[in-house]
Design a protein around this nucleic acid. Structure first.
Lengths: 221, 221, 221, 221
DNA sequence: AATGAATGAGACTTCATTCAT
DNA sequence: CATGAATGAAGTCTCATTCAT
């Protein structure tokens, strides 16, 4: 019934005895993401995680002290991975404001970030009150930073064209909602909706808000 | 030791010894929604539900056979409640296409539908793979119907103005994503984001897509 | 290795399904005492207790909420049993003060109270800081009551003879220490020291303090 | 996450990399006593002991082979410490029998022996059947020796006065019980009962048994 | 001589489900 | 219809012990 054979992953060296703590932590976090994608957050147990990691039961508590903390560290890893990606995309100072805004959009729907496996973790946290508290605490600063940068870019774009009637705040709140809405679509209907679909639709959205700066993506032409 | 006082709800008559099955079912579904809002879907047990309902342990299994089924029936109730609402809003045949589209939007953010208590149930289902399957199966037809109606309205509006470059499909996919994105916002930040905020932002979105049919909502002016 | 067969005790009726809570509680407390006597307090697990009681694992938590509480209720049972016994022995108002004091002594070393099985519970609680706190809280009132009664009797006896140099307080503190010291002796060397030995030695102790009221117990004469 | 700071004790030299085995053993035994006083015998783990000692996890097993053995060695240390003390007190051959008996009493309630920290160890062993076996085995000879010496002194005192009715055996059994009873008092109510209180009460006890040799301790006079 | 990562058995507790009453 | 005692599997976490380094 239940699979008892270990799904030991990675080379024999990575799963060997007495590995450096950072290696084990990364290995366990990766296994946690897999487990959440497969069994859900509440279906994820110390047992599913360590079995996927190819390690023994006790080791997870040894490195993370508690399950709650392990889940929290997993979310933190994803949040930092996302943050690092869009910050890196913005580093090129030769980009225009419009290009920078698109870079942030692209980071959201980058295959490394936006795949059903990792989205399952985010929505696992959204789904439970206790985890939502964890989430709020964890992304507070990161989200505030992205909001400031994004709204700043919108304001800069607004100044560069005839956009008197466009409210940058309103555009950004819509844009941020689109991120989440498309994420959910990709999570629930992975075969019908992709990150690239999301990118195209966001392009169309931006083209309607700032026609001089973004061109709509024309389907099959 | 200390007996937890029952949170018996409703009048003594509704909670009496022998109530008609439909009453008990409704009572239990309401308690289930409360429990999910308070403890999350995985934190919801037969015990939390029956305690909130002010009934005995065994009764839920008696009426719903299993926990899985009880949760499923709860989701079905919400899906039908939502469906009934927007269908009712569309019933007035004197409405224009644009007004009808706005009516659907309003139904999404109606206080009866869009409150943290009920949103918690939806996102509880989104958060777990096993429940996502239930969700997909349950809303398949209902969502398809709403999609057809909505896209039809978009196409009608498109015909009524100079909207050659507007793709109704694209607009609707964005609009549906906005629903979910705003729902998530309301769930996570109930004190910072309301259904009315969502309505305004959707108005702005529609005004950019169909400027001749929708006017942007101007903040306090 | 480990005995797996249930040591179901009592008649089939007492262990049957759906017994009144008081019956189950008493049954579990009795099994707890047995388990502590056999495996010690820290060696007592929900598993040893329920196995001895012939019940399933979950039932102990159902009736006592937690292991800690079950242990606490077990101690309370013993404390009340002891209290009830010496109070009953004192009820006969025709007894002299000396006879009443002896009655309290007898209650301490009564076979129902002072047997290795129950002493193991008391000293199990004495042995661990966390349990000592529980003990202190639990016996506070009961011990104070016994102290008041005992010292009162000592004072009365003192008035009835030439005992100017006898300090009732000092005698009672010694007597109470003797109780505990003999209890420990009986617990550790059950084959070498009995409750009757203790009674005799206490008689000798009292005879030295109040020679006019107590006669020493003369060994084999 | 947060690294618990080690409670490394002693000077840096005693805790250095490579210390002589006897030093390490003494260091670990001291830490074991502390741990038992703080967490109880069953709450004492290899981890609590090594953390208190400021050493690494594996070291205790290295020096003591097993936890059981480490606890046993700790008890042996205390038993020998006690034995050495009363033997030393008796060494002065100019003392009378009565003075020698008092010296043994004093040794029992000497601050070095009779403090809540070390009493916690003794009663930790008394509290569990498995540990009681260890205790019996360990103190067998030591207790027999003290018993012989003590009864011998009682007999000598008896010969020196008009104590025909006094049974030395009975007195000593009471006296030994008083030791344990007062120990328990000091352990459970350290703020209400001290070793000096015990000494006074024992003096009163001896004064009643051998009035010509011991004078009662008169409270503040 | 010393470290600390790793193991795995076992503890307490929770909970969906069953069933006598 | 309804109650609530009872079951037993499963989850999280602890810990003595082992062992590569």
């Amino acid at each position: 019934m239940a699979k008892k054979t270990r799904e030991r992953r990675g080379s024999a060296t990575t799963a060997g005895r007495t590995a450096p703590p950072e290696v084990r932590r990364a290995q366990l976090i990766d296994a946690t993401i897999d487990s959440i994608a497969q069994y859900g957050l509440s279906g994820t147990t110390m047992s599913t995680v360590t079995r996927i990691a190819g390690l023994s039961q006790g080791i997870a508590n040894f490195h993370f002290q508690s399950k709650k903390n392990m889940l929290c560290e997993t979310l933190r890893f994803l949040a930092e991975e996302h943050h690092d990606l869009w910050k890196a995309q913005l580093a090129d100072s030769s980009l225009s404001s419009a290009e920078k805004l698109l870079a942030i959009v692209d980071a959201h729907f980058h295959a490394k970030i936006c795949n059903p496996r990792k989205l399952a973790v985010w929505f696992g946290f959204f789904g439970e009150p206790a985890h939502r508290d964890t989430y709020r605490e964890l992304v507070k600063d990161i989200d505030a930073e992205r909001w400031e940068v994004s709204v700043g870019l919108c304001r800069a774009i607004r100044e560069q064209g005839k956009y008197e009637s466009v409210d940058p705040d309103s555009v950004m709140r819509n844009l941020e909602a689109l991120y989440d809405g498309f994420f959910l679509n990709i999570l629930i209907y992975p075969d019908m909706f992709s990150g690239d679909d999301a990118k195209r639709l966001v392009r169309n959205f931006l083209a309607r808000a700032f026609p001089e700066h973004f061109s709509p993506f024309l389907e099959r032409s």
